[in-house]
Computed example of a mutant assay.
Amino acid sequence: MSVCQRCQQDFTCAVADKTNQPCWCMVLPAIDAPTLPKADIDPNATCLCPHCLPLWKSEVIAAKSKL
């Protein structure tokens, strides 16, 4: 099991947990990391949970559109 770096809930990250299955996050559109604003998430985090990753991505996009 993995732990979400944002909400601290346990979840399965197929990549980090080495399940040999495609991970749910692979179907989400990628974000170009160098264009992201500073975030309060550990850059060494393996992943965010299925609830937090889409939420975080929408927050990042919204913040970037305000610039």
Rank of each mutant, 00 (worst) to 15 (best):
S2I: 04
S2E: 08
Q5K: 08
R6T: 07
R6C: 03
C7F: 05
Q8D: 02
Q8N: 12
Q9K: 14
F11Y: 08
F11N: 07
A14G: 06
V15K: 12
A16L: 11
D17R: 14
D17Y: 14
K18R: 11
T19Y: 03
T19Q: 15
P22K: 14
P22Y: 01
W24V: 08
C25Q: 12
C25K: 14
M26P: 00
V27M: 05
V27L: 12
L28E: 11
L28R: 10
A30W: 06
A30N: 10
I31V: 05
D32Q: 04
D32E: 06
A33K: 14
A33V: 14
A33F: 06
T35L: 08
L36A: 11
L36C: 04
L36V: 08
L36N: 02
P37W: 00
P37S: 00
A39C: 14
A39R: 15
D40V: 04
I41G: 01
I41T: 11
D42F: 04
N44T: 06
N44W: 04
A45Q: 06
A45G: 11
C47L: 07
L48W: 09
C49N: 07
P50A: 01
P50C: 02
P50S: 03
H51L: 13
C52W: 12
C52K: 10
L53V: 09
L53W: 08
P54M: 02
P54N: 04
P54Y: 11
L55I: 06
W56P: 02
W56M: 09
W56C: 06
K57M: 13
K57G: 03
S58F: 02
E59N: 10
E59L: 09
V60E: 00
V60T: 03
I61R: 11
I61Q: 13
A62Y: 06
A62F: 09
A62T: 15
A63Q: 07
A63E: 02
S65E: 03
